[in-house]
């Protein structure tokens, strides 16, 4: 409904389609130092997450009550230990697995549902469009974090339910993006032509509309992972996310905030990790937007 959204949408609607688009985009992306830095950060966390079992000799769960609150760099604990005597570095690298997975899956979920609804609304128009668009309006009028809180409260607190809640609240973002893209494509000649030769609706949607809507989705999706990771952590911080002993970063923050004076490192490192990984995705997403959108090219 807002003009900003509208502006973004119309900007994407004018991207020309070319075979070499992806190659061009990569070339442009590679020139952008900040985007490469972002990609590097993301890659770094992916490697941490994948290699977690190799990187650390400790388990992320369990409890060693005699080992509570060991300071960073002492007794073989790079980042110290937490209130249950667990190695903080271990929990952070396993936490990377969780944040990346939840962020990615939540965005994929939003994209699938949002794209579907957006395609349907944009292509068929009329009352279907009316209903879907109004539902999006209603959802966007909600303070999203409160909506997520309510959904998790209904479904029961768990990481999966947090993921579902985050996926749901972000559906309208993608839905409206795709809808406006479809609306502009519908007027293009090749779609008109396809319709004229009697191509079936689903084939038009699947073969023409969907592929042509992918670019803005990819850009928005990359930025969306950043948002989803923060939202996961926020729910975790409010005690509505992961179930212990799962080392989710937001939950770790909530667990250790009571010890901030006694053991500040248990608060500093999980927060820093959230910030870095989100920064990575934001940089990468910004870069992708510039690279995939030649209009913005300097």
């Amino acid at each position: 409904m807002s003009q900003l959204q509208h502006k973004v949408e119309t900007t994407f609607a004018t991207i020309p389609k070319k075979e070499s688009l992806w190659l061009d985009a990569w070339k442009r992306l590679r020139r952008r130092k900040l985007a490469m830095l972002g990609g590097g950060i993301v890659l770094f966390f992916i490697i941490l997450a994948v290699l977690a079992p190799v990187l650390t000799p400790y388990p992320y769960d369990g409890a060693e009550l005699s080992q509570r609150f060991i300071k960073p760099m002492e007794e073989g604990h790079w980042l110290g230990t937490d209130d249950l005597g667990r190695d903080l570095f271990t929990r952070i690298v396993y936490g990377a697995q969780i944040s990346l997975r939840v962020g990615f899956l939540a965005v994929v979920g939003s994209i699938i549902v949002g794209t579907y609804l957006g395609l349907v609304a944009g292509y068929y128009g009329k009352w279907i469009d009316m209903i879907i668009s109004r539902v999006f309006d209603i959802m966007l009028a909600f303070p999203s974090i409160l909506l997520a809180i309510a959904i998790v409260t209904i479904l029961g607190r768990s990481l999966t339910n947090a993921l579902i809640a985050i996926a749901i609240i972000n559906v309208p973002t993608y839905g409206r993006l795709v809808r406006s893209k479809v609306l502009s494509l519908k007027e293009e000649e090749f779609i008109m032509a396809a319709k004229a030769i009697g191509m079936k609706n689903w084939r038009i949607i699947y073969h023409h509309l969907l592929p042509n809507s992918m670019t803005p989705i990819i850009v928005q999706g990359t930025l969306g992972i950043a948002t989803a990771i923060i939202e996961t952590a926020a729910l975790g911080f409010l005690g509505l996310g992961a179930v212990p002993p799962t080392p989710e970063w937001g939950t770790m923050l909530a667990d250790s905030k009571d010890y901030i004076q006694l053991a500040p490192w248990t608060v500093i490192f999980p927060g820093l990790s959230i910030m870095l990984v989100v920064l990575g995705f934001n940089l990468l997403g910004d870069g992708l937007r510039d690279a995939l959108d030649p209009k913005m090219k300097q």
Binding site: L253, V267, P270, G271, M275, L276
Partner: peptide
């Protein structure tokens, strides 16, 4: 990219 809840905690600290 800032998680505001963390920023808040660090400010307080």
């Amino acid at each position: 990219s800032m998680p505001v809840f963390w920023l808040g905690l660090m400010e307080q600290y």
